[in-house]
Simulated assay, not measured.
Amino acid sequence: MRVIVGLSAMLAVLLLCACERQDAAPLDQQLYVWQRQWTSAHELALKDSRSDFSTLRVLALQAFPSDGWHRARIDAPLLKHDGRPLIAVIRLDGQLKSLDQSQVTAQILQVVADWQAQGLTLSGVEIDHDAGNARLPEYTEFLTHLHSALPASLPLSITALPAWLGSSQLPALLATVDSSVLQVHAVSDPRRGLFDPEQARRWASAWGKISSKPFYLALPAYGVALLPDADGAPVVESEVPIEREGQRRELLADPLQLSRLAKALREDPPEHLAGLIWFRLPLANDRRAWSLNTLRAVARGDALSSQLGLAFSDHAGLQDIALRNVGNLDSAWPARIIVKASACEGADALAGYSLQQSADLLTFTRLRDGRLPAGGQRAIGWARCAFIDQGGSHVDP
Protein backbone atom coordinates (compact mmCIF):
# COMPACT_ATOMS: atom_id res chain seq x y z
CA MET A 1 0.00 0.00 0.00
CA ARG A 2 2.86 2.37 0.79
CA VAL A 3 4.41 1.64 -2.61
CA ILE A 4 1.14 2.45 -4.37
CA VAL A 5 0.79 5.70 -2.45
CA GLY A 6 4.40 6.62 -3.26
CA LEU A 7 3.92 5.94 -6.96
CA SER A 8 0.70 7.95 -6.97
CA ALA A 9 2.38 10.88 -5.31
CA MET A 10 5.29 10.74 -7.75
CA LEU A 11 2.88 10.63 -10.69
CA ALA A 12 1.02 13.65 -9.34
CA VAL A 13 4.27 15.61 -9.05
CA LEU A 14 5.30 14.71 -12.60
CA LEU A 15 1.91 15.73 -13.95
CA LEU A 16 2.10 19.01 -12.04
CA CYS A 17 5.53 19.75 -13.46
CA ALA A 18 4.34 18.94 -16.96
CA CYS A 19 1.39 21.29 -16.54
CA GLU A 20 3.69 24.02 -15.28
CA ARG A 21 5.94 23.64 -18.31
CA GLN A 22 3.00 23.79 -20.69
CA ASP A 23 1.61 26.84 -18.95
CA ALA A 24 4.93 28.73 -19.03
CA ALA A 25 4.51 31.94 -20.99
CA PRO A 26 6.35 31.89 -24.35
CA LEU A 27 8.99 34.52 -24.94
CA ASP A 28 7.60 37.68 -26.45
CA GLN A 29 8.99 38.61 -29.89
CA GLN A 30 9.40 42.26 -30.83
CA LEU A 31 11.03 44.29 -33.60
CA TYR A 32 13.20 47.36 -33.87
CA VAL A 33 12.30 49.69 -36.75
CA TRP A 34 15.53 51.57 -37.26
CA GLN A 35 15.29 53.69 -40.40
CA ARG A 36 15.59 57.46 -40.15
CA GLN A 37 13.82 57.88 -43.48
CA TRP A 38 10.69 55.79 -44.04
CA THR A 39 9.83 54.59 -47.54
CA SER A 40 7.04 52.75 -49.29
CA ALA A 41 8.80 49.47 -48.41
CA HIS A 42 7.72 49.88 -44.77
CA GLU A 43 4.09 49.19 -45.57
CA LEU A 44 4.62 45.61 -46.78
CA ALA A 45 7.26 44.89 -44.13
CA LEU A 46 4.93 45.92 -41.33
CA LYS A 47 2.02 44.00 -42.82
CA ASP A 48 4.01 40.79 -43.23
CA SER A 49 5.55 40.99 -39.75
CA ARG A 50 2.33 41.60 -37.84
CA SER A 51 1.45 38.00 -37.01
CA ASP A 52 4.85 37.11 -35.52
CA PHE A 53 6.03 40.20 -33.63
CA SER A 54 3.96 41.79 -30.90
CA THR A 55 5.53 45.22 -30.48
CA LEU A 56 7.40 47.81 -32.53
CA ARG A 57 10.29 49.77 -31.04
CA VAL A 58 10.71 52.62 -33.47
CA LEU A 59 13.66 54.98 -33.82
CA ALA A 60 12.25 58.41 -33.09
CA LEU A 61 15.09 60.78 -32.28
CA GLN A 62 18.89 60.83 -32.33
CA ALA A 63 21.41 63.16 -30.69
CA PHE A 64 24.97 63.37 -32.05
CA PRO A 65 27.94 65.15 -30.45
CA SER A 66 28.73 67.34 -33.47
CA ASP A 67 25.55 67.08 -35.55
CA GLY A 68 22.84 67.90 -33.03
CA TRP A 69 19.34 66.45 -32.98
CA HIS A 70 17.74 64.48 -35.79
CA ARG A 71 14.15 63.27 -35.95
CA ALA A 72 13.26 60.05 -37.76
CA ARG A 73 10.74 60.76 -40.50
CA ILE A 74 8.19 58.11 -39.62
CA ASP A 75 4.94 57.32 -41.40
CA ALA A 76 2.48 58.03 -38.58
CA PRO A 77 -0.69 56.94 -40.47
CA LEU A 78 1.00 53.63 -41.29
CA LEU A 79 1.97 53.04 -37.65
CA LYS A 80 -1.53 53.99 -36.52
CA HIS A 81 -3.04 51.53 -38.98
CA ASP A 82 -0.62 48.82 -37.87
CA GLY A 83 -2.06 49.03 -34.37
CA ARG A 84 0.66 47.19 -32.46
CA PRO A 85 2.05 48.54 -29.18
CA LEU A 86 4.53 51.25 -30.02
CA ILE A 87 7.68 52.27 -28.14
CA ALA A 88 9.56 55.41 -29.18
CA VAL A 89 13.34 54.91 -29.05
CA ILE A 90 15.64 57.88 -28.43
CA ARG A 91 19.26 57.32 -29.37
CA LEU A 92 21.73 59.44 -27.39
CA ASP A 93 25.17 58.90 -28.89
CA GLY A 94 27.69 57.46 -26.44
CA GLN A 95 30.23 60.12 -27.46
CA LEU A 96 28.11 62.96 -26.09
CA LYS A 97 30.24 64.78 -23.54
CA SER A 98 27.35 65.12 -21.10
CA LEU A 99 23.57 64.82 -20.87
CA ASP A 100 21.86 68.16 -20.29
CA GLN A 101 18.87 66.89 -18.30
CA SER A 102 16.55 69.77 -19.09
CA GLN A 103 17.39 69.97 -22.78
CA VAL A 104 17.27 66.22 -23.45
CA THR A 105 14.07 65.78 -21.46
CA ALA A 106 12.44 68.66 -23.35
CA GLN A 107 13.37 67.07 -26.69
CA ILE A 108 11.93 63.71 -25.63
CA LEU A 109 8.70 65.20 -24.28
CA GLN A 110 8.27 67.12 -27.54
CA VAL A 111 8.62 63.92 -29.58
CA VAL A 112 6.05 62.19 -27.36
CA ALA A 113 3.64 65.11 -27.76
CA ASP A 114 4.16 65.27 -31.53
CA TRP A 115 3.57 61.55 -31.98
CA GLN A 116 0.44 61.70 -29.85
CA ALA A 117 -0.78 64.70 -31.88
CA GLN A 118 -0.49 62.49 -34.99
CA GLY A 119 -2.85 59.97 -33.44
CA LEU A 120 -0.23 57.53 -32.14
CA THR A 121 -0.71 55.86 -28.77
CA LEU A 122 2.65 55.19 -27.16
CA SER A 123 3.24 52.16 -24.94
CA GLY A 124 6.62 53.37 -23.71
CA VAL A 125 9.83 55.29 -24.25
CA GLU A 126 13.24 53.65 -24.60
CA ILE A 127 16.57 55.41 -24.17
CA ASP A 128 19.53 54.02 -26.12
CA HIS A 129 22.73 55.46 -24.64
CA ASP A 130 26.06 53.62 -24.63
CA ALA A 131 27.43 55.23 -21.49
CA GLY A 132 30.77 54.06 -20.19
CA ASN A 133 30.83 52.57 -16.69
CA ALA A 134 32.40 55.70 -15.25
CA ARG A 135 29.39 57.75 -16.40
CA LEU A 136 26.67 55.45 -15.07
CA PRO A 137 26.06 57.58 -11.93
CA GLU A 138 25.37 60.60 -14.18
CA TYR A 139 23.18 58.46 -16.41
CA THR A 140 21.24 57.22 -13.38
CA GLU A 141 20.53 60.81 -12.35
CA PHE A 142 19.33 61.65 -15.84
CA LEU A 143 16.99 58.64 -15.98
CA THR A 144 15.54 59.51 -12.58
CA HIS A 145 14.83 63.03 -13.82
CA LEU A 146 13.34 61.81 -17.11
CA HIS A 147 11.13 59.19 -15.47
CA SER A 148 9.62 61.79 -13.19
CA ALA A 149 8.94 64.08 -16.18
CA LEU A 150 7.22 61.43 -18.30
CA PRO A 151 3.52 60.69 -17.82
CA ALA A 152 3.05 58.05 -15.14
CA SER A 153 1.27 55.85 -17.68
CA LEU A 154 4.31 55.75 -19.97
CA PRO A 155 6.89 53.08 -19.01
CA LEU A 156 10.58 53.89 -19.42
CA SER A 157 13.12 51.34 -20.64
CA ILE A 158 16.78 51.49 -21.61
CA THR A 159 19.12 49.70 -23.95
CA ALA A 160 21.88 48.21 -21.80
CA LEU A 161 25.43 47.01 -22.38
CA PRO A 162 26.97 43.78 -21.02
CA ALA A 163 29.97 45.86 -19.86
CA TRP A 164 27.71 47.34 -17.20
CA LEU A 165 27.64 43.95 -15.44
CA GLY A 166 30.99 44.92 -13.93
CA SER A 167 29.66 48.14 -12.39
CA SER A 168 28.43 48.44 -8.81
CA GLN A 169 26.13 51.21 -10.12
CA LEU A 170 24.04 48.80 -12.18
CA PRO A 171 21.38 47.91 -9.54
CA ALA A 172 20.73 51.61 -8.89
CA LEU A 173 20.54 52.28 -12.62
CA LEU A 174 18.03 49.49 -13.21
CA ALA A 175 15.93 50.72 -10.30
CA THR A 176 15.21 53.94 -12.23
CA VAL A 177 13.48 52.21 -15.17
CA ASP A 178 10.63 49.79 -15.72
CA SER A 179 12.56 47.36 -17.93
CA SER A 180 15.83 47.00 -19.79
CA VAL A 181 16.99 45.67 -23.15
CA LEU A 182 20.35 43.90 -23.00
CA GLN A 183 22.16 44.34 -26.31
CA VAL A 184 24.28 41.25 -26.94
CA HIS A 185 25.42 42.00 -30.51
CA ALA A 186 28.13 44.28 -31.88
CA VAL A 187 29.29 45.14 -28.38
CA SER A 188 33.04 44.60 -28.73
CA ASP A 189 35.61 44.82 -31.51
CA PRO A 190 33.62 44.24 -34.73
CA ARG A 191 36.61 42.41 -36.19
CA ARG A 192 35.73 39.56 -33.84
CA GLY A 193 32.28 39.22 -35.34
CA LEU A 194 28.82 40.54 -34.65
CA PHE A 195 27.67 37.94 -32.21
CA ASP A 196 28.79 35.11 -29.92
CA PRO A 197 25.80 32.96 -28.84
CA GLU A 198 27.55 31.35 -25.86
CA GLN A 199 28.69 34.69 -24.53
CA ALA A 200 25.21 36.12 -25.09
CA ARG A 201 23.74 33.30 -23.04
CA ARG A 202 26.18 33.96 -20.18
CA TRP A 203 25.45 37.68 -20.23
CA ALA A 204 21.70 37.06 -20.17
CA SER A 205 22.03 34.69 -17.21
CA ALA A 206 24.14 37.18 -15.29
CA TRP A 207 21.75 40.04 -16.11
CA GLY A 208 18.78 38.04 -14.84
CA LYS A 209 20.48 37.58 -11.49
CA ILE A 210 20.98 41.35 -11.06
CA SER A 211 17.76 42.67 -12.58
CA SER A 212 14.64 42.34 -10.47
CA LYS A 213 12.52 43.71 -13.34
CA PRO A 214 11.66 42.30 -16.77
CA PHE A 215 14.41 42.47 -19.36
CA TYR A 216 14.68 41.65 -23.04
CA LEU A 217 17.52 40.50 -25.26
CA ALA A 218 18.27 42.53 -28.38
CA LEU A 219 19.39 40.03 -31.03
CA PRO A 220 20.90 40.65 -34.49
CA ALA A 221 19.16 39.88 -37.77
CA TYR A 222 21.52 41.86 -39.98
CA GLY A 223 25.05 42.20 -41.29
CA VAL A 224 27.69 44.91 -41.72
CA ALA A 225 30.81 45.44 -43.79
CA LEU A 226 34.16 46.45 -42.35
CA LEU A 227 36.35 48.84 -44.33
CA PRO A 228 39.93 49.71 -43.40
CA ASP A 229 40.52 53.24 -42.17
CA ALA A 230 43.71 55.19 -42.73
CA ASP A 231 45.07 54.20 -39.32
CA GLY A 232 43.99 50.55 -39.68
CA ALA A 233 40.91 50.80 -37.47
CA PRO A 234 37.76 49.41 -39.11
CA VAL A 235 34.99 51.60 -40.44
CA VAL A 236 31.55 49.99 -40.20
CA GLU A 237 29.20 50.19 -43.18
CA SER A 238 25.61 49.12 -42.55
CA GLU A 239 22.46 50.32 -44.29
CA VAL A 240 23.99 53.42 -45.89
CA PRO A 241 26.91 52.94 -48.33
CA ILE A 242 30.15 54.70 -47.43
CA GLU A 243 32.19 56.33 -50.18
CA ARG A 244 35.55 54.81 -49.33
CA GLU A 245 38.13 52.74 -51.15
CA GLY A 246 39.26 49.38 -49.82
CA GLN A 247 38.24 45.77 -49.53
CA ARG A 248 34.97 45.20 -47.66
CA ARG A 249 34.79 42.35 -45.18
CA GLU A 250 31.19 41.24 -44.75
CA LEU A 251 29.94 40.10 -41.33
CA LEU A 252 26.48 38.55 -41.02
CA ALA A 253 24.64 37.20 -38.00
CA ASP A 254 24.06 33.48 -38.59
CA PRO A 255 20.33 32.56 -38.53
CA LEU A 256 21.17 28.97 -37.53
CA GLN A 257 23.12 30.19 -34.49
CA LEU A 258 20.35 32.57 -33.48
CA SER A 259 17.71 29.88 -33.96
CA ARG A 260 19.57 27.54 -31.60
CA LEU A 261 19.98 30.30 -29.02
CA ALA A 262 16.30 31.27 -29.20
CA LYS A 263 15.33 27.62 -28.72
CA ALA A 264 17.60 27.32 -25.67
CA LEU A 265 16.17 30.51 -24.19
CA ARG A 266 12.61 29.29 -24.67
CA GLU A 267 13.37 25.98 -23.00
CA ASP A 268 15.40 27.40 -20.11
CA PRO A 269 15.00 31.18 -19.87
CA PRO A 270 17.17 33.25 -17.51
CA GLU A 271 15.43 34.86 -14.57
CA HIS A 272 13.23 37.83 -15.54
CA LEU A 273 13.74 37.37 -19.29
CA ALA A 274 10.52 38.65 -20.88
CA GLY A 275 11.30 38.34 -24.58
CA LEU A 276 13.50 38.87 -27.61
CA ILE A 277 13.77 42.01 -29.72
CA TRP A 278 15.15 41.59 -33.22
CA PHE A 279 17.27 44.26 -34.85
CA ARG A 280 15.95 45.18 -37.34
CA LEU A 281 12.71 45.13 -39.35
CA PRO A 282 13.96 44.08 -42.81
CA LEU A 283 12.82 46.07 -45.81
CA ALA A 284 12.74 44.64 -49.33
CA ASN A 285 15.76 46.75 -50.34
CA ASP A 286 17.77 46.25 -47.13
CA ARG A 287 20.79 44.39 -48.50
CA ARG A 288 22.35 43.73 -45.09
CA ALA A 289 19.35 42.40 -43.18
CA TRP A 290 17.92 38.90 -43.11
CA SER A 291 14.84 38.50 -45.23
CA LEU A 292 11.59 38.70 -43.34
CA ASN A 293 10.92 35.05 -44.27
CA THR A 294 14.09 33.96 -42.48
CA LEU A 295 13.49 36.23 -39.50
CA ARG A 296 9.95 34.91 -39.04
CA ALA A 297 11.15 31.32 -39.29
CA VAL A 298 13.79 31.92 -36.61
CA ALA A 299 11.27 33.67 -34.35
CA ARG A 300 8.80 30.79 -34.75
CA GLY A 301 11.44 28.14 -34.11
CA ASP A 302 10.92 26.53 -37.53
CA ALA A 303 13.52 24.21 -39.02
CA LEU A 304 15.68 26.25 -41.39
CA SER A 305 16.76 25.28 -44.89
CA SER A 306 17.65 26.87 -48.22
CA GLN A 307 16.17 25.26 -51.32
CA LEU A 308 17.87 26.55 -54.44
CA GLY A 309 16.64 25.81 -57.93
CA LEU A 310 16.37 27.28 -61.39
CA ALA A 311 13.42 28.92 -63.09
CA PHE A 312 13.15 29.32 -66.88
CA SER A 313 10.83 31.71 -68.66
CA ASP A 314 10.42 31.63 -72.43
CA HIS A 315 10.14 34.79 -74.53
CA ALA A 316 9.74 33.80 -78.19
CA GLY A 317 12.51 31.22 -77.95
CA LEU A 318 14.77 33.21 -75.64
CA GLN A 319 14.99 31.67 -72.16
CA ASP A 320 15.57 33.90 -69.15
CA ILE A 321 17.37 31.88 -66.48
CA ALA A 322 16.82 32.73 -62.82
CA LEU A 323 18.01 31.34 -59.52
CA ARG A 324 15.31 30.97 -56.88
CA ASN A 325 15.21 30.05 -53.20
CA VAL A 326 11.95 28.40 -52.12
CA GLY A 327 13.24 27.61 -48.62
CA ASN A 328 12.95 29.72 -45.47
CA LEU A 329 16.69 30.40 -45.05
CA ASP A 330 18.59 33.08 -46.96
CA SER A 331 21.38 31.57 -49.04
CA ALA A 332 24.73 32.64 -50.45
CA TRP A 333 24.83 32.74 -54.23
CA PRO A 334 25.92 29.31 -55.43
CA ALA A 335 29.46 28.95 -56.75
CA ARG A 336 28.37 27.28 -59.99
CA ILE A 337 25.19 26.69 -61.95
CA ILE A 338 25.10 24.20 -64.79
CA VAL A 339 22.43 24.21 -67.50
CA LYS A 340 22.24 21.37 -70.01
CA ALA A 341 21.65 22.98 -73.40
CA SER A 342 22.52 22.34 -77.03
CA ALA A 343 22.42 24.12 -80.38
CA CYS A 344 22.61 27.55 -78.73
CA GLU A 345 22.58 30.62 -80.97
CA GLY A 346 23.55 32.86 -78.10
CA ALA A 347 23.79 33.05 -74.31
CA ASP A 348 25.18 35.37 -71.65
CA ALA A 349 25.47 35.83 -67.91
CA LEU A 350 24.22 38.78 -65.92
CA ALA A 351 26.03 40.77 -63.25
CA GLY A 352 27.67 38.60 -60.61
CA TYR A 353 28.27 35.57 -62.82
CA SER A 354 30.38 34.64 -65.84
CA LEU A 355 29.44 32.14 -68.56
CA GLN A 356 31.44 29.31 -70.05
CA GLN A 357 29.75 27.59 -73.01
CA SER A 358 30.43 24.13 -74.45
CA ALA A 359 28.59 21.95 -76.95
CA ASP A 360 25.99 20.78 -74.44
CA LEU A 361 26.54 22.82 -71.27
CA LEU A 362 26.16 26.38 -70.06
CA THR A 363 28.21 26.90 -66.91
CA PHE A 364 27.58 30.03 -64.83
CA THR A 365 30.40 30.76 -62.34
CA ARG A 366 30.08 33.19 -59.45
CA LEU A 367 32.32 36.26 -59.68
CA ARG A 368 31.42 37.91 -56.38
CA ASP A 369 29.55 37.12 -53.22
CA GLY A 370 25.88 37.82 -52.74
CA ARG A 371 22.79 36.52 -50.94
CA LEU A 372 19.51 35.24 -52.25
CA PRO A 373 16.71 35.86 -49.75
CA ALA A 374 14.31 33.13 -48.73
CA GLY A 375 11.40 33.25 -51.15
CA GLY A 376 13.45 35.36 -53.56
CA GLN A 377 14.54 35.05 -57.17
CA ARG A 378 17.44 36.54 -59.15
CA ALA A 379 18.11 36.51 -62.88
CA ILE A 380 21.55 35.07 -63.71
CA GLY A 381 21.52 34.97 -67.50
CA TRP A 382 19.75 34.15 -70.75
CA ALA A 383 20.07 31.66 -73.58
CA ARG A 384 18.60 31.08 -77.02
CA CYS A 385 18.99 27.35 -77.61
CA ALA A 386 17.24 24.66 -79.63
CA PHE A 387 17.10 22.44 -76.54
CA ILE A 388 17.39 23.13 -72.78
CA ASP A 389 17.13 20.21 -70.38
CA GLN A 390 15.59 21.97 -67.39
CA GLY A 391 15.40 18.79 -65.32
CA GLY A 392 19.05 18.00 -65.96
CA SER A 393 20.31 21.38 -64.85
CA HIS A 394 21.61 21.80 -61.33
CA VAL A 395 23.05 24.21 -58.75
CA ASP A 396 26.35 23.63 -56.94
CA PRO A 397 26.73 25.32 -53.51
Rank of each mutant, 00 (worst) to 15 (best):
N328V: 06
L79V: 04
L96M: 13
A297K: 08
H315D: 13
L150W: 06
Y216E: 03
R368P: 06
L292F: 10
A131Q: 01
A335K: 14
D254I: 01
G301Q: 07
A225T: 10
S98R: 15
Q247E: 13
A172Y: 11
L120D: 12
P155Y: 00
R201N: 06
F64K: 09
G68K: 06
W69G: 02
Q35C: 00
A386C: 01
D100I: 01
T55N: 11
A311P: 02
L156Q: 02
L86T: 05
I90R: 00
H81M: 03
V224M: 07
Y32N: 09
A113T: 15
F312V: 12
L11D: 00
P220I: 11
G327T: 03
P155F: 02
V58M: 07
S40T: 14
R266W: 05
L283V: 10
T140H: 01
V112D: 14
E243K: 13
A149T: 01
R288W: 08
Q95M: 06
D52A: 13
L92M: 04
A316G: 00
L261R: 02
P282N: 13
D178G: 08
D75Y: 04
G6N: 12
E243L: 10
M10Y: 14
L109K: 09
Q118Y: 00
I210F: 01
N325R: 03
V3M: 06
L281F: 12
K213G: 02
L217S: 07
G193V: 05
G223M: 03
V111P: 04
T140W: 03
W333P: 07
L304T: 08
R21E: 13
D254V: 02
M10C: 13
L281G: 12
L308A: 05
L350N: 15
W38N: 15
W115I: 08
A374N: 07
A322S: 15
S211K: 05
I337H: 10
S179D: 09
S8K: 08
Q37R: 14
Q116W: 13
E20K: 11
L283H: 12
S291F: 09
D189V: 02
R71S: 14
G166E: 14
R135I: 01
L14T: 08
A347F: 11
R260S: 14
G301N: 06
Q377K: 14
Q37F: 07
C19Y: 11
I242Y: 01
T176N: 03
I108G: 09
G317V: 04
Q22R: 11
Q199I: 01
D314Q: 11
G119A: 14
A113E: 15
L61I: 01
L122G: 09
K213M: 01
L226P: 08
D23T: 04
R366Y: 04
L217M: 09
A204P: 12
G119R: 15
G6D: 08
T159F: 05
S148Y: 05
Y353I: 06
R57A: 02
A160M: 07
S305Y: 13
A9N: 08
Q35M: 03
G352Q: 09
L283A: 09
S49F: 06
N285C: 06
L281M: 13
Q257I: 04
G391A: 14
V187R: 01
P26S: 10
R57W: 05
D114Q: 12
L16T: 14
L156I: 03
Q30H: 15
F64Y: 10
A264V: 03
V184L: 02
S49I: 03
